[in-house]
Design a protein around this nucleic acid. Structure first.
Lengths: 247, 247
DNA sequence: AACAAGGTTTCATATAGTGAAACAGTTTGG
DNA sequence: CCAAACTGTTTCACTATATGAAACCTTGTT
C-alpha cells in the first residue's frame, strides 16, 4: 500500500456511500455507483451490508435507497444527554429571546452548509429559516466561520472548486477569514441575500474542533454592523456554552 | 462463502464497532476489540477508516473513541425536513397540550429502549422523563410496543437473554404481545415503576417497519386503565401522523 | 413482444484485509 | 525507581476475501 494510511478500503467506500445522501434523500443503486465511481456490483454488496445493519433502508414505494434509522439512534449518543439538535435547542431559544432575532445552526457538508436547526424570531418581519436548507459556502457570516475554523484542506478545495465565484476578490476573502479567526466571529451584510444580515460564531468541541456555526440573522436595517459587533460577545459566549454541552 | 449473504465482512465489522457505542459513549480500543471479538490491530484499522470519514472521533482529554459528528449531519437527512427528533416535536407538544401528560419517544436499541425525545406534562405532579435515559425492554407499555412490532428475531433474543426476569410468566407475556399487535397499542400500570402508568403506540414508516414508540405517561391515579383505553385512538392517530412525517 | 433500465448473482483473479507478533508509549505499583 | 502491566500503533507474510466483468433476472415502457 502506498499512501501510508493504515485503513481499510471497503469501509471507506461504504462510508462514502452514506455520505452520498447528504443533499439527496433518495438514490438508486446506479446513481450511487456513478457518484462514488464504483461498479454496480461492488456498490450493491456494500449497500447490502449497510442495509443489514440498519444504516441504509429502502423506500418500499420507490425501491430507492435512503438512510436508515440506525443513524438516528446513534446520533442520540453523540452528546451527554442525547441528540445535539435537541440539546442545543433551549440555549438557542434563550438567545432568541435575548436578541429577538432568528437563530440558526449550520454545519459544513462538502462544499455547502446545511441549516441543521433553527428557532424563529418573533418579529413580524423576520428571516424565514427552514431546517435542512443548503446554501453555498463562499458567502454569508456562517460560511466564513465554517471555513475559517475548518481543517485547512477545505479552503483549498473551495478555491479550486468550479463553483467558486469568479468575480470574488480572493485577497480580500482570505483577509476576512483571518479576521474571523482572530475575532472569533464573523458578520455579513447583504452578502448572500439582499436585505439580510447575520453574525456567526463557531461551536467547538472539547478538542477545539469545529462542530457547527451558530448564527443570528435578520433584516439589515435592524441588524446594523454596529449592533452586530455589540452583540458578538453574547453570541460567542452562547456558542461556547453550547460547545461544552456536547462533551 | 457459506451463509449466502452477499455482503462485505469488513464493512459489517466497522458498523458493529459503531453500534458498540449505543449505551457507552466512550470506549477504548481494547474495550471495543473485546466487544466485537476481533483483534486489536483489526479494530485499529477499522477505527482509523471510520475516524478519517468523521464517523468516529477521539476525545482529546481521555484519548478514548466516541461517535463523530458526521452522524449528526446524516441523521438530519433522515426525514424530509431534517432531524426526526426535531420534526416530531411539534406533534408531541400538541399531544401533550391535548392530554396534559408527559409524552415520550422511545427507540429499541439492542435489548434496551432509549428515550430519544420527550415533552413534559404541565401538571405539578408529573413523570420526569430525561432524554437519553435507557431502560429494560421487558416491562412497560413502550417495551411491549417495541417488541411486538419489531423483527421476529428480537423476541427470541430477549427470551434467551441472561437479563430476562426469571419470575415472569412467559405465556402471559406472549399473550400481551399479540394483544398489542392486534389492538395497535399497549398499556402498563405500575409495571416498571411503582405509581406510574403509560399508553404507547408504534410509529411506523411507509414500509410498515417500526421506527419508534410514542408514549403517554403519568401517575397511575390520574392515568387509569379506562382513561388510557379511551385516549388510545388519539395516541394511535398521532403516531400514524408522525410516521407520515418521516417519509 | 421486444426493449430498456434498473437490480441481482456468479465466478476467476489477485488485491487487499487479516491476525500474530513485535514495538512504543503510559500508567500502576511494589 | 525500575519493573510490570496496561494502553495504542506498526510491520509483515499469508491467503482469505473483496473485486469488477459479464451474465442473469425483474421491472416497466414503447
Amino acid at each position: 500500500m502506498e499512501d501510508g494510511k493504515l485503513t481499510v478500503r471497503a469501509v471507506e467506500r461504504a462510508l462514502d456511500i452514506m455520505l452520498c445522501f447528504t443533499g439527496a434523500s433518495e438514490l438508486t443503486l446506479t446513481e450511487i455507483a456513478t457518484r462514488v465511481q464504483l461498479h454496480k456490483s461492488t456498490v450493491h454488496r456494500l449497500l447490502a451490508s449497510l442495509e443489514g445493519k440498519g444504516f441504509i433502508m429502502r423506500d418500499e414505494a420507490t425501491d430507492k435507497y435512503r438512510l436508515g434509522y440506525r443513524l438516528w439512534e446513534l446520533s442520540a449518543n453523540l452528546s451527554k444527554e442525547g441528540d445535539p439538535g435537541i440539546i442545543l435547542l433551549p440555549e438557542m431559544e434563550r438567545l432568541r429571546d435575548q436578541l429577538g432575532e432568528t437563530i440558526s445552526l449550520y454545519v459544513q457538508d462538502g462544499l455547502v452548509r446545511v441549516r441543521i436547526q433553527a428557532v424563529q424570531s418573533n418579529h413580524a418581519i423576520r428571516r424565514v429559516a427552514p431546517v435542512g436548507a443548503r446554501m453555498p459556502l463562499y458567502v454569508g457570516a456562517s460560511s466564513k466561520v465554517l471555513v475559517a475554523f475548518a481543517e485547512p484542506g477545505l479552503l483549498e478545495q473551495l478555491l479550486t472548486s468550479a463553483d467558486w465565484p469568479t468575480g470574488l476578490d480572493t485577497q480580500a476573502y482570505l483577509q476576512q477569514l483571518s479576521d474571523t479567526r482572530r475575532a472569533g466571529f464573523a458578520t455579513s451584510v447583504e452578502e448572500r441575500e439582499p436585505g439580510a444580515a447575520a453574525v456567526s460564531a463557531p461551536i467547538l468541541d472539547r478538542g477545539g474542533r469545529l462542530v457547527a456555526a451558530l448564527a443570528v440573522s435578520g433584516p439589515a436595517n435592524r441588524l446594523t454592523l454596529e449592533l452586530m459587533q455589540e452583540q458578538a460577545p453574547t453570541i460567542m459566549e452562547a456558542a461556547r456554552r453550547m460547545g461544552t454541552m456536547l462533551r
